[in-house]
Computed example of a mutant assay.
Amino acid sequence: MNAGSRIPLWIIALLAALCLGVLAWTTFGFVVPFKHETGQAVLDVYFAGYDELTVGRMQRLLEQNEVADNLLRAMYFGPELIFPALLATLLFLVILRLRTAIPDQARPTGSLVLKAIYALPFVYGVTDYGENISSLIAFGDSTSASFAAAILPWMTKLKFASLAVCLILIVRFAIIRYMALGPREDR
């Protein structure tokens, strides 16, 4: 019996529900009010990425709008403190469960490949926290604000890239598992 096959589905379902709840809290408690207050979206939701000019515009906007600045800081010190850890854990457990449930001949081989696959959710979590910290520094009065503003777009790109690869792996493992085991053996 593999370690991943011992992960109960209710734990994965609970983590998924918690992630959805925290995502809803972030969206309806901070992202939507921020958009309503400023007419702009928070940088965290720019899936296609952004550049330093966008960061500079956001810096000027937050300097002029105290309500928006307070909303953004409250978001980073509220739901964004727990969401990256919850989602990284969920991604890791789903990858572990799906990967160990597929037949040996369809599994990725090589310990380096497996380590990279299992590390990917944690890369997402670390880069999401890095993006949050960079945002707080870039939009604050720190002497490191210009450096944080320069790396912020790269942190966001790395965050979404690692998340996308995790989701692709999950879909791939789910398809392989379905094809190997059939629809009736899903436990």
Rank of each mutant, 00 (worst) to 15 (best):
R57T: 14
P121H: 04
W10Q: 09
L93A: 12
G110L: 02
L87A: 12
I151F: 08
V171Q: 09
E52L: 04
T109N: 09
L71M: 00
T127F: 07
I175S: 09
E63P: 00
A101I: 02
F77S: 06
A106P: 03
L9G: 15
D44Y: 05
P153C: 06
G182N: 07
S144H: 14
A138N: 06
R97G: 05
E37G: 03
F160M: 05
A74R: 00
R187T: 15
E37R: 09
I12R: 05
A24E: 02
I168W: 15
L86A: 03
I176C: 05
S144I: 01
Q40Y: 13
L112N: 03
P183V: 12
L15Q: 07
M179E: 15
L169V: 13
R107V: 04
F147L: 13
A88D: 03
D141Y: 10
G125R: 00
I7K: 02
A164Q: 02
F139P: 09
T109F: 05
E66M: 01
R57W: 08
A180S: 14
A13Q: 08
I170W: 09
V171N: 08
Y50E: 10
P108N: 11
D186V: 15
L61Y: 00
A41L: 11
R184D: 14
V45N: 08
A85P: 00
R99N: 14
V165A: 12
A88W: 04
G182M: 11
Y50T: 11
Y118I: 01
L167H: 12
I137Y: 04
L20R: 04
C19V: 15
P103L: 08
Y50M: 10
L136Y: 13
V22Q: 00
C166G: 10
L167F: 12
R172I: 12
S142P: 08
A119I: 00
Q105N: 13
S134V: 02
L181R: 11
D141W: 11
A48V: 13
Y118Q: 03
A85D: 03
Y46P: 00
I7A: 02
N132A: 07
V171L: 14
M58L: 06
A119S: 15
S142A: 11
I12M: 13
A148F: 06
L18Y: 00
